[in-house]
């Protein structure tokens, strides 16, 4: 019975053009976000690795110096990117990308990427995580908000109840239907 209810829900959803459209939009946005995230990750980590090597090279090849000036010459540490940041950049735009390590001076992290962006940055960034955290819940609500209330308004709920379907089974069946729709 559970499966049957779920299957009916899926058929109804699949036939409803609006959900196909909404699902397509989410898929498109998610793909774009992931693609851009991946590109960004690749670029930044390549730069970071190259710069880290270069700063090491500079440190080793600074020539003969007294230790004090060498310690002041210092070395830069660049913030590495982790691969999952392609899904969600997190606080990266608001933390500096580099810090200069030198003797008896504590420098701050420099260059927050958000400072090199327009004020639109403050609305948030399109990322895979944003699509999953903001859009998908909305779509689930959209899919499910009228699953019982709609049947009640259409009068089909009375009929279902009169057939002896247990309300909990009906509810679980509908939830399964929505969940299955998202699974595929």
């Amino acid at each position: 019975m559970l499966i049957r209810i779920a299957r009916k829900e899926i058929v109804e959803m699949v036939r409803d053009g609006r959900f196909r459209f909404a699902g397509g939009m989410v898929f498109l946005l998610l793909s774009c976000a992931l693609l851009l995230g991946w590109q960004h990750y690749r670029e930044v980590s390549a730069q970071q690795q190259a710069a880290q090597l270069a700063t090491r090279h500079q440190w080793l090849n600074q020539g003969k110096k007294n230790p004090h000036s060498a310690a002041h010459y210092g070395i830069y540490a660049f913030k590495p990117k982790i691969p999952l940041s392609l899904l969600d950049r997190g606080t990266d735009p608001y933390t500096g990308v580099a810090v200069w390590l030198e003797a008896h001076k504590q420098n701050q992290f420099q260059y927050r990427p958000a400072q090199d962006a327009t004020a639109v940055q403050r609305f948030g960034e399109l990322s895979g995580a944003m699509v999953l955290q903001v859009l998908v819940p909305l779509l689930i609500v959209l899919l499910a908000f009228s699953s019982l209330a709609g049947e009640r308004e259409a009068g089909t709920l009375r009929q279902l109840m009169s057939l002896g379907v247990r309300p909990s089974v009906l509810l679980r069946g509908k939830a399964l239907g929505v969940a299955a729709r998202w699974g595929c």
């Binding site: 774009c32 962006a117 960034e125």
Partner: peptide
């Protein structure tokens, strides 16, 4: 959601893709 969250976020991504700012890491170097 579209006007207040999604479109500004898309615009933000678009503007960065159209006019990328050079890397600050490279500037330091």
């Amino acid at each position: 959601l579209l006007l207040v969250v999604i479109i500004p976020a898309v615009l933000n991504v678009a503007v960065k893709a159209m006019y990328p700012v050079p890397s600050r890491i490279e500037l330091i170097q």
